[in-house]
């Protein structure tokens, strides 16, 4: 096993183990802390696969913004945290467990049986992603970039309007 494979296995185990901890934790707050570990593991996978810029973006946005936002929301809804003995799952959870296990099995078999059209050996890998991505956003991908800007603005205004005190 090479060093890269070893790092991959460690990052994957952290990601999946924390994900299981997240969905099984009794308290939503503890689940949110597990979720931060999942995001960190995914960032490690991004950096390992060669997308270092995306790994940094993942840490900034998911851990720095979304996880903190979710922790805030949990703190602001205190009645949920006040009752630790309330059941955490709804009635359909055994059925959901069977279905999602089946989904994971089907996806794994499909991934292993498919012949992926891999790139040629020795294809040059782009380096300096921040520069290349910035150029891309200003040229080829300017329409998705603008649409994403408008979406963020609308979401920001919408969130303020919905959450505002009457």
């Amino acid at each position: 096993m090479t060093a890269e494979q070893f790092v991959f296995v460690v990052a994957a185990l952290i990601t999946l183990g924390s994900a299981v901890g997240m969905v099984t934790s009794r308290s939503v707050f503890v689940g949110a802390l597990w979720m931060i570990a999942v995001f960190g593991g995914v960032a490690a996978l991004f950096i390992l696969v060669g997308a270092g810029f995306l790994g940094i973006v993942q840490i900034l946005i998911y851990i720095g913004a979304i996880a903190v936002l979710i922790l805030f929301a949990i703190m602001l809804t205190p009645r949920v945290m006040g009752d630790p003995n309330a059941p955490r799952y709804n009635r359909q959870w055994p059925l959901v467990a069977v279905m999602t296990t089946g989904l994971a099995a089907v996806l794994t078999v499909l991934v292993l049986r498919t012949d992926w059209p891999l790139a040629q050996e020795g294809t040059p890998v782009i380096t300096g992603f921040a520069v290349e991505l910035g150029k891309g956003f200003m040229t080829t991908y300017i329409l998705p970039f603008e649409v994403a800007s408008v979406l963020l603005l609308v979401a920001l205004i919408g969130a303020i309007v919905i959450a505002r005190e009457e």
């Binding site: 999946l16 299981v20 949920v80 955490r88 709804n90 359909q92 279905m99 999602t100 794994t108």
Partner: peptide, 21 residues
């Protein structure tokens, strides 16, 4: 495979939790 497992675990959490968060 890691992505497929992560997706399934996330789907389980989204479909079985009682808490909206």
């Amino acid at each position: 495979i890691v992505a497929a497992l992560l997706f399934s675990i996330g789907a389980y959490g989204a479909l079985s939790r009682r808490n909206a968060i």
